[in-house]
Design a protein around this nucleic acid. Structure first.
Lengths: 177, 177
DNA sequence: CCTCCCATGTAAGCCGTTACATGATTGC
DNA sequence: GCAATCATGTAACGGCTTACATGGGAGG
């Protein structure tokens, strides 16, 4: 599984709390890995037990304490080991397409509305990714070089969302006529 | 979850054995839902307990007996109920992108090879989807009308794979320079 | 007052993967 | 002989979701 390694990759970039990680998963990391807070905290616990990460407590005024996790040497070793292996191509399990596949069984309006609703979500994601890209493209060359690989994953997100939206338009037209 | 409903959708089209379903999941259904035989047989068991499907035994010479499952009225009712609801947008968990994100930690050749290996897989899928599309486009109009919705899911597969391949080319060029 | 944000966790249960198991036929 | 295809299943384990739980501060 890769949640472990997604966390390690992020902690290698910068030490973070569980909550910080959650924000990353909601934002930038989110277009290639998703996780809820319950799962993140559990994995942090396990990774700590395995000595791949350690944490220090940070007191805050008016807010709960934070556990700041950082990756250990063992963690970096484990991460590099995993990165050097190969992963299987992603499998797709898309409930919306299951629904579409059986679209003839329900009323067309129903299908169209569901498609449109998903379209809105994807459009929002698409635009937010484009914004992140703009920030990157306006940044200094050293910064761009440093975040070359994360940028590639951003591009994947952008091209993927673009394709989704193209498809949705095509699909809506085909259903209507 | 949707494996249940993916099975129901397929059984609504035609009665099938667990093995037949597995072939569908490896083929056409596979670009939007994946499942292994162990999971399929377990779900068939559960769906039978819930009376959404029933089966009859078919004896075969020289081969093990087949259980031919078909959907019940209750199953159709349940399927329609599910189809009429809404599903959440798909979450993406892509291990390859996690690896890319941490690409700076390992040797570039390593990353390039992994990308190229995935590229080959995606190219094969892409071409097989295009072939299926050709068969559809050469079929009779009544056939095309009947399988309008499955065709839309096929288009999703095609546009998705196209976008993946476009991205991979872009990524490989960017890494090399 | 109510909701959202910050910040962390436990527990139950389902979903999905990996491993184990059987057995005949077809093709190289 | 060996691998692949047909055909079905059980068991153990890990991943992920849903529900439950706490508690202060900020803003409308």
């Amino acid at each position: 599984m890769s949640l472990k390694h997604a966390i390690l990759v992020q902690l290698e970039t910068e030490p973070s709390s569980g909550y910080d990680l959650l924000q990353h998963f909601k934002g930038g990391l989110g277009y290639f890995w998703n996780a809820k807070h319950q799962q993140i905290y559990q994995q942090l616990k396990k990774l700590t037990e395995q000595k791949f990460i350690t944490f220090s407590l940070e007191q805050q005024s008016g807010k709960p304490d934070k556990k700041i996790y950082k990756i250990t040497n063992m963690g970096i070793k484990e991460l590099k080991r995993w990165l050097s292996g190969s992963v299987k191509p992603n499998k797709i399990n898309d409930a919306l397409l299951v629904k579409l596949y059986g679209g003839h069984l329900i009323e067309e309006v129903n299908v169209i509305n569901e498609l449109k609703s998903h379209q809105q979500t994807h459009e929002k994601i698409y635009h937010s990714l484009l914004e992140i890209e703009q920030t990157y493209l306006n940044s200094s060359l050293p910064f761009q070089k440093k975040f070359k690989f994360p940028y590639l994953t951003l591009r994947r997100g952008i091209l993927g969302e673009q394709a989704w939206l193209d498809w949705a338009n095509e699909a809506l037209q085909m259903i209507k006529k």
